[in-house]
Design a protein around this nucleic acid. Sequence first.
DNA 1: GATGAAAAAATTTGCGG
DNA 2: CCGCAAATTTTTTCATC
Lengths: 153, 153
Amino acid sequence: MTEDYRIDNLDKTILTALQADARTPYAELAKRNGVSPGTIHVRIEKMKQAGIITSAQVIVDPKKLGYQVCCFIGINLKAAGDYPEVLKKLQALPEVVEAYYTTGHYSIFTKILTHNIDALHHLLVHQIQSIEQIQSTETLLSLQQPIHRQINP
Amino acid sequence: MTEDYRIDNLDKTILTALQADARTPYAELAKRNGVSPGTIHVRIEKMKQAGIITSAQVIVDPKKLGYQVCCFIGINLKAAGDYPEVLKKLQALPEVVEAYYTTGHYSIFTKILTHNIDALHHLLVHQIQSIEQIQSTETLLSLQQPIHRQINP
DNA sequence: GATGAAAAAATTTGCGG
DNA sequence: CCGCAAATTTTTTCATC
């Protein structure tokens, strides 16, 4: 997390492989790249130190857990200074999985998952629009997510 | 990926731990939950089989790789039927890390990462707005992402 | 289904080039 | 900085409850 580090081609192929499968054995990566498992280990540790690799996460399919509805809600605030207060309230809602502070059409832009449309309706009206610093909201319902990937190192 | 499976509390705590750190040792999870490592293993395998766990990924910090700019681009198509064609072209752009088919203000909603504002400008004008089936676009620049997490199982 | 210990595999460390 | 190989840790299997 401290030092800067400029990655080379070996690092890139390691990263790309681990983005797809964080459990790829070091021996496998070593063989693919013609180096030893020890070298793979060293490179990964360096990229962790440099903050390039932030974590390894198991990815869960929200639909399989009953979260059938995915949407974005754009939020406009009454005053720009209300931002921290509103953020704190959004943070307390587990359905809000992402929030962005944006320029353009909205002040805050959020990604939301709910079990169904009724739950979304309830969340919107009773948890979000009821936040006093919020002036207006706009909802974009996602019907499908055809692209979801990480950036190519 | 085949069968349905209703998760219990043990599964939930396992999932929550692995969402934060996919490398949490099974022995550690076993101790925390008062079960054996074998049980942890069986539960995880079942959740993989059921498609609840889709993958384990190393998460990379785009900024540390030089991708300083994050934005959303909302796209409106000339005709709804142009959707597959446009999607194919977006798929070919590695900067497009997410795409959603949405109702509401836009037809397609994308999340984009670029090295800098110039690169965004170039991508927007020469790669996206030049797609003939696209009627108009709207860009939301993200200044900060204060919330990014997975859904709570 | 879960256990727990044994077997197999992977990760980590440290010496030497 | 890399490779090799030993030491450690983790995952996986399996006979048993």
